[in-house]
Amino acid sequence: MLDIAEKLNEIGAGLRSLAEPWADTTSPAGRMVLTVFAGMAEFERAPCAVTPDVHPADTRVGG
């Protein structure tokens, strides 16, 4: 969606939702909200490699 909004901006047009007031690329606040949402979506798609694989035997208490 950001790519579409950017292409529209290049030709002097904007994207404005009739149902969602935050989705308005014709205003600085609308572009910021759209950018934040795109960042959140990218973060959710990224694989979460927080902890390495742990063998069940390595999780025993005291051993």
Rank of each mutant, 00 (worst) to 15 (best):
M1D: 02
L2F: 07
D3A: 05
D3E: 07
D3W: 01
I4A: 10
I4T: 10
A5P: 01
E6I: 09
E6C: 00
K7E: 11
K7H: 03
N9M: 09
N9D: 14
E10F: 03
E10M: 09
E10I: 04
E10P: 00
I11Y: 08
I11P: 02
I11H: 10
G12C: 00
A13H: 11
A13K: 12
G14K: 05
G14F: 11
G14Y: 10
G14L: 01
G14N: 13
L15C: 05
L15P: 07
L15S: 09
L15V: 08
L15D: 06
R16T: 01
S17T: 12
S17M: 06
L18A: 13
L18E: 09
A19Q: 12
A19F: 10
A19P: 01
A19C: 10
E20D: 12
E20I: 07
E20G: 05
P21R: 10
W22N: 11
W22Q: 08
A23E: 11
D24H: 10
S27N: 03
P28L: 09
P28K: 08
P28C: 04
A29I: 03
A29L: 07
A29C: 05
G30V: 04
R31N: 02
R31K: 05
M32L: 14
M32D: 15
M32K: 14
M32I: 09
V33L: 06
V36I: 15
A38R: 13
A38D: 15
A38M: 04
A38V: 04
G39Q: 13
G39V: 00
M40Q: 08
M40F: 08
A41V: 13
E42L: 08
E42V: 02
E42T: 05
F43W: 15
E44K: 09
A46M: 13
A46R: 15
C48R: 14
C48V: 14
A49R: 09
A49M: 07
V50T: 09
V50N: 08
V50H: 02
P52R: 14
P52M: 09
D53E: 15
D53S: 10
D53K: 15
V54I: 14
H55T: 06
H55C: 11
P56T: 06
P56S: 13
A57M: 12
A57V: 11
T59F: 04
T59H: 01
R60K: 05
V61N: 05
V61L: 07
G62R: 01
G63I: 15
